[in-house]
Write a protein that binds this DNA or RNA. Structure first.
Lengths: 162, 162
DNA sequence: CAAAATAGGGATATTTGTTATCCTTAATAG
DNA sequence: CTATTAAGGATAACAAATATCCCTATTTTG
């Protein structure tokens, strides 16, 4: 059970977009080049972010992506779910219904207890991601990344931002 | 990102094995028939439980599986990890290293901040599963399942237990 | 001792999901 | 008008999950 690589890509792209000045856009091409990713396929991840309303886009030269909300209003869960989907990791196929001893018309009222427990763990995972904002990541990165690398990166992005 | 169906199967099989009297064994054939599952493939899940030391096996007619520990000593995490593996859901491919602005020999000391956050969510999921014991599930089921169905099921299993 | 049933495990399909590429269309800036 | 962009459909390559088959060693039972 492994998350799509697009989840990693989307998170890093959002971190870059968070550093973009108001009103500027960054293209798929620039984001792909920066991260060393296949442009066409990265585009699918960015489309997912767009469909989820997390980023705003414009067409044409100087077009691309910018965040649709402030980094403090964007959670990790928003980004992860936009790309990976909102489905639970545990799928209950209700195999208890195959019990040969159950009465013919027996119909279970509550979801399977096994599923309920597994879904609680899923929810704990989501809750953790819901409580991390993109702004939290930016704050961590600004402390960890050397100032000169930060500055050069910022310059690299601005050169390509439309 | 969906867990293997074998995880569901293993959890339900352990619940059945938990009701087995001391020293008795239940075969793959019986477990597969009870749950309506493909015998050969279910066998792979049970082999995983065996390799993880969660169940004990014997060969020959009247052979099969029993729990290797008391239900109170078996957690959901034990069972899930035995079948699904212990790998994290988020795989960090360190795409930050592709940043064209970074110094040639620049080597990051700490794991990527994005990965650290995602791994914390993974750990929250594990922690939740670690805190649910198989005995907790049995307790819930004993309350939810009608007494007559429980009795018939118990009889069905005992008829086939070696 | 012989026969039947079992777990274990290797080999191999089959199916599904992920990853990736290509191409067309509509919009937009210069 | 031209170049560039996002969006999205079609399709291919690849990997993982699901499933089946078959052989072996072991053990109970008759």
């Amino acid at each position: 059970m492994i998350l799509k690589s697009q989840v990693e890509w989307a998170l890093h792209c959002c971190a870059i977009l968070a550093g973009l000045p108001e009103g500027r856009y960054l293209s798929t091409k620039a984001l792909a080049e920066f991260h060393g990713l296949p442009k066409e396929y990265l585009s699918k991840a960015l489309q997912s972010l767009s469909q989820a309303g997390l980023v705003h886009t414009t067409l044409g030269p100087s077009g691309g992506y910018r965040l649709a909300k402030a980094p403090a209003e964007l959670t990790f869960l928003d980004i992860v779910e936009a790309v990976e989907g909102k489905a639970r990791t545990f799928v209950c196929t209700n195999i208890r219904a195959n019990n040969p001893c159950r009465a013919p018309g027996y119909c279970e009222s509550t979801p399977c207890a096994v599923a309920r427990i597994m879904w609680e763990a899923d929810e704990a995972w989501r809750e953790k991601l819901r409580n991390v904002r993109l702004s939290d990541l930016i704050e961590i990165l600004s402390k960890e990344i050397p100032a000169d690398l930060m500055k050069r990166t910022f310059g690299w992005v601005l050169e390509r931002a439309g």
